[in-house]
Every structure is written in C-alpha cells, then in structure tokens.
Design a protein around this nucleic acid. Structure first.
Length: 108
DNA sequence: ATTCTGACGTGGG
DNA sequence: CCCCACGCCAGAA
C-alpha cells in the first residue's frame, strides 16, 4: 500500500524472508519497483531497528557479504544469527550464497 | 530551501 | 574475480 513509507515496504518484504535464507538489497529494491535504488533499501534497514520482526541479518549485499554487520549490536552478531539458521559464514562471506539466495520477485 | 550521507548495484577496464 | 566511477533517492541537519 502506498500509504506506508518506503521503509515499511522494505520491512514487509524482509519479514517474508524464509528461515535459513538470505536475499540482497537490490532484489528487494527491484521487487518494490525501486530498481537501482538499492541504497534506499539499506537505508530503510537502518530504520528496521525499530522493528525487531525485520530480520536484517538475512539481508546482505549482492556478493553475499555481511556489509551491515557493523550496524548490529555486536561485532559478529549478524554472523552468529545466520549461523544459527544453518548458514555458513566465513570472513563475513556467506558460503553457497547462490544456493541460499531468496529472490522475492522469483519466489513471490 | 540546499547539502550530505548512506547496511548498494551496475557497467567498464 | 578485482578495482574505479556514477547513479539512485529518501531522510537528517
């Protein structure tokens, strides 16, 4: 709904990310029709702190790199959360990223 | 109103 | 695969 801000839309899609899966900012941006504005997605995730239901740790950049781990409370909190879901993360890089990748446009 | 920043993506080399 | 430069647009100061 257009009544909700861009943030709410991003949060909504993020909440739809299945357990043990990850997606990229660009994928969400494209799903929202904001292709190319992937930055806005990342910025929106920043506001996701107000919404604990938003699994921001499941959203990484297109390389599968935990670029936003620095924004989490701990230094490696993001990695721990992902590993907790069965995702293997080495040096901020998600292993088998292409296999774990979840595309909202494709899946929804 | 203007300016800057930002958890990115893409294209070219 | 890596590196560099540009675009993108919403929000905060």
């Amino acid at each position: 709904m257009e009544t909700e801000s861009f943030f709410s839309k991003v949060h909504d899609v993020a909440k739809l990310i299945p357990y043990g899966r990850v997606t990229s900012y660009g994928a969400i941006a494209r799903y929202l029709g904001a292709a190319g504005s992937a930055r806005m997605v990342g910025w929106a995730m920043n506001a996701s702190h107000k919404d604990p239901d938003v699994p921001a740790h499941r959203v990484v950049n297109r390389k599968g790199l935990l670029t936003g781990k620095h924004h989490f409370a701990g230094t490696n909190l993001m990695q721990q959360l992902l590993e907790s879901e069965g995702i293997v993360v080495i040096d901020n890089q998600i292993q088998d990223f292409d296999r774990l990748f979840w595309d909202p446009m494709k899946e929804l």
